[in-house]
Design a protein around this nucleic acid. Structure first.
Lengths: 151, 151
DNA sequence: TCAGATGCCGAATGTCATTCGGTGCGGGAC
DNA sequence: GTCCCGCACCGAATGACATTCGGCATCTGA
């Protein structure tokens, strides 16, 4: 990727697009003081540089029937660095991170029920090298939001 | 919200929109076997029902300079159920969940540096009722993806 | 001072979102 | 069994908007 300096306008555009990626370039331009054409240029370059990866929709997990959210600390007896595909193969897993600390991998799991969560834990144990799990269920989600471009 | 039964077409549309919310309704319709007009109707209703909350852009945190990801277990000596605004006021926090278990709140934090992370921990301690924190730094993120509509 | 590059503007073109009237189908009432 | 109503879809028409492009101003380095 090329030089990645983002000026104030770029950051403002990213913030506006995070709010609503569907609005017209004319409206975006008005908000940052640019013409529609110039705004289009800026956004196109943000995409080319990989700052903006894709435009997507934010879905209510509850509406999909996914009412249970849990974080699972996965302990292992072996190097887990190449196990990404094994975790990705479990669709209930939304995120998987290699972490420093007593556990090896931290995963975020969304399921329909706690029984369903148990089934995911069973599939986690089936992954090569996994020696234990410690699940923590979320009782209430305060908020989930995208990274702030203004830091 | 109204009855929220999603048929196969709805779920397919959600999946396609998660992939790329910018594609034409004609293309979406072709993929699910619907006319552009009917596809537009479906998506509009998904939005009205709150299944689709908004269209947004996915940003590379690294491009924003946010190279450090950590999960922090926040221990408390009091009821934290009303503390959502206090956590939301810290922009480095991407997610905050009330959890079952020894800690009270689990937060996901993204910062530029580990020094910056330490500053966030300092601000967490300043929240009423917070008695301790336990931070876990992510060494590598395997993946982060939206909830799967096909479960 | 000059040359090149960059960022922006404003207009032109084509594509696509959005709307709307009409049609067929399924379910419920009688 | 028949009628009526509501729902989902289609197809066309309209208007809005993305996208492109030539030209201009500004800045940088030589």
């Amino acid at each position: 990727m090329a030089l990645d300096h983002l000026d104030g306008i770029d950051r403002a555009l990213v913030a506006l697009l995070q709010e609503d990626a569907g609005q017209a370039y004319a409206a975006l331009g008005r908000a940052v003081g640019l013409s529609p054409g110039a705004t289009h240029d800026r956004v196109r370059k943000l995409r080319e540089r990989g700052v903006v990866r894709r435009t997507t929709v934010e879905v209510d997990p509850g509406a999909l029937g996914l009412g249970v959210l849990a974080f699972v600390m996965v302990e292992s007896s072996a190097w887990m660095g190449d196990s990404a595909p094994a975790f990705a193969a479990i669709p209930e897993i939304e995120e998987a991170h290699v972490i420093a600390g007593s556990a090896s991998v931290l995963v975020k799991v969304r399921t329909t029920t706690t029984e369903h969560l148990q089934d995911v834990l069973r599939r986690l144990y089936a992954i090569e090298g996994v020696s234990g799990t410690q699940a923590t269920v979320s009782l209430e989600t305060f908020f989930e939001r995208p990274p702030s471009p203004t830091l």
